[in-house]
């Protein structure tokens, strides 16, 4: 039955057609290209490009960076959400806005700030040089820049989730004699664990894929400070397209797994859709 609020068949099919064409060209086609380019010479060649020494060290560094950044930002996210949702204090709204800063500045600025602090002409540059400590163009610098960029991910998912849950159950546990740790692990954590996971996978995906911030602080030293995205760029510039695409296919796999977990968590309403929880502030 046709209702007055239904669009006519012409509008319907043309809008659907436009949407499919747009999504096909801009989203599906690039994914297919990465897969085709990575696999068109066969599995054996694909695996051999992944086992090349540059690819392997890049994968290792990327994993090590994520291993440092994701737990740090998760701890921060839980602390920030706990303090913001369970207590009233002055400047809370300002604090919540400040947490979002890294989402709206350019990732290049996320790297630039650390280059200006730890670089040779930076604020701490001369001091670091006399103490033989390398932060820029080394692992600590990459971790700092990545942590800056992925800073708000866990907090932004948890704050609306914990706000919607309120403090009643925690207060009840307190009257039953629970101490702080018991309160957190037995009452709060079971309620927020999927929200934490949600934030962690988004944080992890961004941490492993970050390019702009890291390329400022890493200095492109092959086999030493190249994360996977940087190695992709270097392979591309050195005409090593097969290597570039095989690394890219791994990051693509990561993106697809992240999306699947995200969608599953949202379908089962285990975690709030960050977008719907933060209307008008969609930057991920």
């Amino acid at each position: 039955m046709r209702r007055v609020t239904n669009d006519g068949w012409f509008a319907r099919y043309s809008l659907l057609g436009i949407m499919f064409a747009f999504i096909g060209l801009f989203l599906v086609f690039p994914v297919c290209v990465v897969l085709i380019e990575a696999l068109h010479a066969g599995w054996g060649f694909y695996l051999s490009t992944l086992q090349s020494i540059h690819s392997w060290t890049a994968i290792r560094l990327t994993l090590l960076v994520a291993l440092a950044v994701v737990p740090l930002n998760t701890l921060f996210g839980i602390c920030a959400a706990w303090s913001v949702t369970h207590f009233q204090f002055r400047g809370k709204a300002v604090l919540i806005s400040l947490i979002e800063i890294p989402l709206w500045v350019s990732p290049v600025i996320g790297g630039l700030v650390f280059a200006l602090i730890f670089g040779r002409q930076g604020w701490l540059g001369p001091w670091l040089e006399t103490h033989q400590t390398q932060i820029l163009f080394a692992y600590p610098g990459i971790v700092l820049a990545t942590a800056f960029v992925t800073f708000p991910f866990v907090a932004r998912g948890l704050i609306p989730l914990m706000q919607s849950q309120g403090s009643a159950e925690e207060e009840a546990a307190l009257t039953l004699g629970a101490n702080g740790w018991q309160l957190f692990w037995r009452v709060t954590f079971p309620k927020i664990k999927w929200g934490v996971l949600y934030g962690m996978i988004l944080c992890n995906a961004r941490a492993m894929g970050e390019f702009g911030a890291v390329s400022v602080v890493a200095g492109n030293i092959e086999d030493r400070t190249n994360t996977m995205p940087l190695q992709i760029e270097q392979d591309y510039l050195n005409f090593g397209l097969p290597q570039a695409f095989s690394l890219a296919s791994l990051l693509l796999l990561l993106a697809v797994i992240t999306l699947i977990i995200k969608v599953v968590l949202e379908w089962y309403r285990l975690a709030p859709n960050i977008v719907r929880a933060n209307p008008g502030k969609t930057i991920l």
């Binding site: 989203l27 894929g209 970050e210 702009g212 890219a248 990051l251 993106a255 995200k262």
Partner: peptide, 16 residues
């Protein structure tokens, strides 16, 4: 799929 540009590393997108 709409969320793909959020999840996909920018360098992979650029390369593709």
């Amino acid at each position: 799929l709409v969320d793909l540009p959020f999840a996909m590393p920018t360098s992979v997108a650029g390369l593709a």
